[in-house]
Amino acid sequence: MRRAALGPEQWEVSAQGLGCMRMGLARKPTDFADAADVIGHALDRGVTFLDTAQMYGDGYNESLVGRAVRGRRDEVQLCTKFGVIVHPDGTWTARGDAAFVRQSCDANLERLDVDVIDLYYLHRRDPRVPIEESVGAMADLVAAGKVRYLGLSEVTGDELRAAHAVHPITAVQSQWSLFSRGIEKVVPVCAELGVGVVPFAPRGTMKRVAVDGTGAQLPTERAAFSAGLGSLARKYDATPGQIALAWLHQRARVWNVTVVPIPGTTRADHLDENIAALDIVLDDDDLSRLDGPPASA
Rank of each mutant, 00 (worst) to 15 (best):
S104T: 09
R22A: 04
D97P: 06
R253P: 03
I275V: 11
I262E: 00
S231V: 11
L78W: 02
L290N: 05
R251W: 12
V47C: 15
R22H: 07
G213S: 14
A99Y: 06
V116F: 06
F200I: 13
M138S: 04
Q217G: 15
T220D: 06
V135L: 02
L119M: 15
V147D: 07
D272F: 14
A244P: 00
L119K: 12
M1T: 02
A15H: 07
T239G: 02
G96S: 15
A26L: 07
A144C: 12
E133T: 05
L64H: 13
D126K: 00
M23C: 08
G241H: 12
A33M: 06
Q217N: 15
D158V: 02
A210M: 11
A191Y: 01
W92K: 12
A143E: 01
V172G: 03
W247D: 10
W11N: 06
D106T: 15
Q16E: 08
R45W: 04
F100M: 01
T239P: 09
R70K: 14
L245V: 10
A144I: 11
L178H: 03
M206I: 15
K185L: 11
S296W: 09
T265K: 13
V76D: 00
R289F: 10
R70C: 11
T220V: 14
R148I: 12
T258C: 14
T80H: 07
R161I: 00
I280L: 12
R125C: 05
V197Y: 05
E192F: 12
G24E: 03
L78I: 04
R72G: 08
R45P: 01
A139Y: 09
V86T: 14
G215C: 14
D237C: 14
S296H: 04
G292R: 07
I131C: 03
A223Y: 07
T205N: 13
V76P: 03
T205Q: 15
A53H: 07
I183Y: 09
L193H: 08
Q173I: 02
A137G: 08
Q54V: 13
T205H: 14
R95Q: 06
L278T: 07
E132M: 07
Q175G: 07
N61P: 10
W176R: 05
S288D: 00
G71I: 03
S134D: 06
A252E: 11
P188A: 10
G66D: 11
P168L: 08
I85L: 13
M1E: 05
H87T: 08
G136R: 00
Q217C: 12
M23H: 02
L78C: 09
L248K: 12
Q16V: 11
